[in-house]
Amino acid sequence: MGLLSTQSYVQSLPKYIALCERNYLRLLKLLPAETVGACHEYHFAGEHYRLVVKNCEKYTTDVDLIKDKAIHTELPLWQLTLRLYHDAKVAEVVYPNYHQRVRPSYGYPNPDMHQKDEKYQVNAFLSDWLCACLENGRSTFHWDVNNDLV
């Protein structure tokens, strides 16, 4: 019995889209003004994070989620680049700082040790981070019936 899996991973698209839709709604609550360079800081669990708007287009907004202090001196600063797709109302991680473009699935094992469902896991991590930020009182809710959130 070999270590190489012969079955390829097939991502559940409805499950992934639902996760990205929830991330979009949560990010709208935390996002600073949608102008390039806008920044909003969050403090919780003794850590300092920033959401910085990097690019705004008609249908997309790119945002960096940055942890300002490295966990350890040997580790790089933690950062995720997020893209909000306003026409589809979804948000996903597009460039985590540890590798370029997260693919939907990876063969396993692989030289870079990516998980089979790494794209889903990275976006689930974003979901957990957004929930933690919202639930710990570091952001106020801005419900507006005119922007289709309610």
Rank of each mutant, 00 (worst) to 15 (best):
C39R: 14
Y42E: 06
L25V: 06
H43G: 04
L27K: 12
L31M: 14
R22E: 08
S12H: 01
L31H: 07
C39A: 07
H43E: 12
E41S: 09
V10L: 12
E21P: 00
K15P: 00
C20E: 10
V36D: 02
Y42G: 02
E41F: 10
L31W: 06
L19V: 01
H48W: 13
L30P: 03
K15N: 12
Y16V: 07
R26M: 12
L30Q: 03
A33C: 08
V36L: 00
Q11A: 11
L25A: 07
Q11D: 04
L19N: 02
T35P: 02
A33V: 13
Y9P: 00
L27D: 01
H43S: 11
P14R: 01
R26N: 14
H40M: 14
C39F: 03
G37I: 09
I17R: 13
G46A: 08
A33M: 10
A45L: 09
L25D: 05
A45N: 04
P32S: 06
R26K: 13
Y24S: 12
K29T: 11
L28N: 09
S8E: 07
L13A: 07
Y9W: 02
Y42Q: 05
H40S: 13
A45G: 04
L30G: 00
L19E: 01
A33W: 08
N23P: 00
L19F: 00
Y16P: 04
E34S: 14
F44S: 02
K29R: 11
Y42S: 03
A18H: 08
H40Q: 15
Y9F: 03
E21V: 05
P32Y: 02
L31P: 05
E47I: 09
F44D: 02
A45T: 04
C20L: 13
H48V: 15
P32I: 04
L31K: 05
T35I: 15
L25Q: 06
Y24A: 11
K29N: 10
L13R: 09
Y9D: 02
K29G: 06
L19I: 03
S12F: 01
N23K: 08
A45H: 09
